[in-house]
């Protein structure tokens, strides 16, 4: 402790002296000092880059030798220098980092033990059409009882039902996460579709939508007659992002019964809504 303190005071007084000197020096000398510092920084940067390239090279060689290697032994005795141990550790580190990253991407989960190992923190990714959207997190206590301590899952997702005693959370954790992830991803998908409708189709008016994005009422206009068509999409299955029911109302009472509009309803049931609308507009069915 004392040595640290005395060392610190030496450094501080040295710094003080430098500052004083600098203040006394003519401007040109300042310029030289600046340049010196710049050169020093550049040398450091160059050395770092060189080291990165070298390490990258050595690690790549090691990986190519044995991509599946999991032991960290250094082969024959002569090769067991500290540096080679370090290189091997770096190789494994790089592999593990890639593996973890890949697992996060493919599973959509990120699980970390919370401090003292009392629980886990799970973060669930949502994505729609390859775009990663919001993440939701749950903090789950393992001891003394398995329970969800905190979370930011939207209230309309039936988390309580999934986490009820004897439910999936207790019997099959993997299944629990699977189901929860399906609910969240379907919600994210519906929400994203609604966003895309608003962005891409200004001629279509969103009359009504709700928080879980399970009901969507759209007003469209027929191009020639300027007749309004009200279209209601009901997404009653919370793990899907396509509607279960599509109904059409219009001033022209016969319109919903026409073959064309029955086909349009089928299209809206089978295709994401923003794409279905794009196709209707393209074909001149609506404005």
């Amino acid at each position: 402790m004392d040595t640290t303190r005395s060392l610190l005071s030496v450094i501080l007084s040295e710094l003080e002296m430098r500052v004083k000197k600098r203040q006394q020096r003519p401007p040109q000398q300042n310029r030289v000092e600046e340049l010196k510092a710049k050169v020093e920084a550049l040398v450091l940067q160059r050395d770092q880059l060189k080291a990165e390239i070298e390490a990258n090279e050595s690690v790549q060689k090691l990986r190519n030798l044995d991509p599946e290697r999991s032991t960290l032994d250094g082969g024959d005795g002569s090769d067991r220098s500290v540096n080679s141990q370090l290189l091997q550790l770096m190789t494994r580190h790089a592999q593990l980092k890639d593996l973890l990253n890949a697992h996060h991407l493919i599973g959509g989960y990120d699980i970390i033990k919370t401090c003292q190992g009392k629980g886990v923190c799970v973060s669930i990714a949502t994505l729609y059409r390859g775009v990663y959207l919001e993440r939701y997190s749950l903090e789950i206590d393992v001891a003394p009882v398995l329970r969800i301590a905190r979370h930011d899952v939207p209230p309309f997702v039936p988390l309580d039902r999934l986490a009820v005693r004897g439910g999936p959370l207790h019997t099959d954790f993997q299944g629990f996460l699977g189901t929860l992830s399906r609910h969240l991803n379907a919600y994210a998908g519906r929400k994203q579709q609604l966003k895309l409708v608003k962005e891409q189709h200004q001629s279509v008016e969103v009359m009504e939508s709700n928080a879980p994005c399970s009901i969507l009422v759209l007003m469209m206009t027929l191009p020639k007659k300027n007749v309004a068509v009200l279209c209601k999409l009901e997404y009653s299955e919370p793990t899907r992002c396509l509607p279960e029911r599509v109904t059409v109302h219009s001033e022209d009472e016969e319109l919903p019964e026409t073959t064309q509009w029955k086909q349009n309803c089928t299209l809206l049931m089978e295709t994401p809504v923003h794409e279905a609308l794009a196709s209707l507009i393209r074909n001149g069915v609506i404005k």
Binding site: P67, E68, L72, L89, R92, H93, Q95, L96, K97, D98, L99, L100, N101, A102, H103, H104, I106, G107, Y109, I111, I112, Q174, L177
Partner: peptide, 25 residues
């Protein structure tokens, strides 16, 4: 740190039910 990461990978493998044998980026 490497040991900690090995543990994380094992846990994540179990969670995903997917075993990765190779991974290049």
């Amino acid at each position: 740190e490497v040991e900690q990461m090995e543990e994380d990978v094992t846990r994540q493998t179990g969670m995903n039910g997917i075993r990765l044998t190779s991974c290049t980026v």
